[in-house]
Computed example of a mutant assay.
Amino acid sequence: MTTLVLLRHGETLLTPQRRISGSGGSDPGLSPAGRRQARATADALARRGGIEAVVTSPMRRCQETARSAAARLGLSVQVDRDLREADFGAWEGLTFAEVRERYPDDLSAWFASPESPPSGAGETVQQVTRRVAAVRDGLRARYAGATVLVVSHVVPVRTLLRLALQAPPHSLFRMEVAAASLSTVTYEEDGTATVRALNDTHHLD
């Protein structure tokens, strides 16, 4: 059995404002609250034990979160560009309320179809799914039978969970993945996936 422990990065200054922060805009680091979350998560992962590798998105907030965990676990950090957040095009930096006001038709189309991009040539859900699925397959092959910490963002983490559940694309918008939350998916040798945990934030209490 191969296990992927999915960790969303800790908070940035944009997170409490619920502003969209993808790979097409700014690349904020962790806020003071986010750094505290990263340390608490690292402690929880150390208590859990058994993690043999740490792989992260290249974006600052993920690398900072991953480095905190890896230092506590005595592991190095590997960066995989395809774990980056979706590119939200013209929606970067806006709240969804602002997007709904400025780009109502584009937002409706994005929610309705995984092939519809955000305004301004952003990345479709389908495009994100392809690259994230490729990362998953690569990790399963490279770390067969091991447990890997994957540090990423809302859309990639939700995508891995959706694929594990074999759920339709619109289910992506029906999951909560909070900052510094942990979710876990296991994979049998035949590829059968099981979601063992979703949006666990107990370590932040």
Rank of each mutant, 00 (worst) to 15 (best):
P32K: 03
R36W: 08
R136F: 01
R174Q: 04
Y103I: 05
A146P: 06
A53N: 13
D27I: 09
G74K: 06
G25Q: 13
R136E: 01
E98Y: 02
H202I: 11
F111N: 01
A33M: 02
D27S: 09
G10D: 12
P156V: 02
A42D: 12
A144D: 04
V54F: 01
D87R: 03
G50L: 14
R100N: 15
T192R: 00
S116D: 10
E85G: 06
L161E: 00
F96I: 09
H170F: 14
R39P: 07
R142W: 08
L7F: 06
H9K: 12
G10H: 10
L163A: 12
H9P: 12
P114L: 12
P28Q: 13
V54L: 02
V54E: 01
L139F: 12
D87T: 05
T194G: 01
T147P: 09
G34N: 12
C62F: 08
V54T: 02
R35C: 08
E123D: 11
A144H: 04
E98D: 06
R8T: 05
T194Y: 07
D27A: 09
S152W: 03
A69Q: 04
H153I: 10
A164F: 02
V148M: 07
A133H: 09
V185I: 00
D43M: 13
G93N: 10
D27V: 09
V77L: 14
R67I: 10
E64F: 12
G25C: 13
R142D: 13
E176C: 13
P32C: 01
R131D: 07
L107N: 12
E188T: 05
L204R: 01
V151P: 01
A38E: 03
V135Q: 06
L30H: 00
V55D: 11
A109F: 04
M1F: 04
R48W: 05
D137W: 01
L94I: 07
S68Y: 07
S116F: 06
M1T: 06
A53T: 13
P28R: 14
S26D: 15
T65G: 06
E64Y: 11
P28G: 08
R35Y: 08
R162Q: 14
L204M: 03
D87C: 07
R60Q: 12
G29Y: 08
G22P: 12
S116G: 11
D43F: 13
L198P: 00
L163Q: 15
R39I: 13
R47I: 10
A40R: 15
G120C: 12
L139P: 06
R196M: 03
G22N: 05
V195Y: 00
S21L: 09
G74P: 04
L45K: 10
R72K: 15
L4D: 02
R174S: 06
L149N: 11
T194M: 07
S181H: 05
R196Y: 00
R140E: 14
L139H: 11
D82H: 14
L75Q: 10
G120P: 11
Q17M: 07
A86V: 15
D43V: 15
D105R: 08
A164H: 00
Q78W: 10
F96L: 10
S57P: 03
L30A: 00
G24D: 13
E176M: 14
G120T: 14
S183V: 01
S23Q: 02
E189F: 08
A144C: 05
T129L: 14
L204C: 03
L198R: 00
P58Q: 11
T192V: 02
R8H: 05
H9L: 12
R196H: 02
V151M: 09
G138W: 11
L139N: 08
E189L: 13
